[in-house]
Amino acid sequence: MAQAPVLPRGFELPLEPRLPRIGSVDAVALEERAASLAKRSIKREAKVFALELAIRMIDLTTLEGQDTPGKVAALASKAIRPDPTHADIPSVAAVCVYPNLVPTAVARVRETGVKVASVATAFPSGQSPLDAKLEEVRWVVEQGADEVDMVIDRGAFLSGRYAKVYDEIVRVKDASSSAHLKVILEVAELGTYDNVRRASLLAMAAGADFIKTSTGKLPGAATLPVTLCMLEAIRDVYEETGRMVGMKPAGGIRQAKQAVQYLVQLHETLGVEWLTPDLYRIGASSLLNDVLMQLRKERTGVYQSGDYFTLD
């Protein structure tokens, strides 16, 4: 029987003056800070470092109605060896697929270190009964998914039923047992940075291992400012509790240059401790090839052609 738990202390309005306070976000200043960080000039060895790190942080993703075992198998191969001609290029962090394709993905990546993440909880809308969502989560975990990317119930959030959102995350966390839980806020539907901050704190309070920007199914997915906003919420939780929560921007990150900007932002907001796939992921598909191209450009000194990189 679902029961709304008591909200964590400090979550509802000013019970506790110290962090993590709900606080608010000034949109203009946030966007200016994000834009300013995006102007960092990352060159040579610092750039190679970032590009290799970016590869190791990618959740290589396919979430289409037309996904088939064949497609997912190919994607998994790419995930394991992104650049067949260069064995020193690392694997990506994970492949991210729909529940039905989890068994295929699990079979392909076994023993490679690449993880399988599955979206769940009636992705992307989240508009299904809780029991159905929990059943889905349990099933993907049984099938071997290492990570569960759930969506929050935006309908509940936007109508002010925060306890319902919180409760659902707690229940999903419970259902996903040892799998690692990423909570998708779907920021494009939340409307304001204040809401993004609020949802971030709520998700972290409910037990999220990661918070994630978007499903990738809407325009206006991950942006630098919204990611910065979430990183700042993560920082507040860390400062207050010592707990390190991960971050996953997803959707719209297609170019190596963007990936470097995201990593600079991460580095200068949360520090070097967060520069690991344990705590940062980039949800992407076409990004990988651009990073590979840029890396090869750094190594060879010549600009590259897409013909030399596999499309999977």
Binding site: I42, A46, A50, V272, E273, W274, L275, T276, P277, D278
Partner: peptide
């Protein structure tokens, strides 16, 4: 997971 974070990232 256990992928250790690097010690630093020096910008060139």
């Amino acid at each position: 997971g256990g992928v250790p974070a690097p010690k630093d990232w020096t910008y060139a």
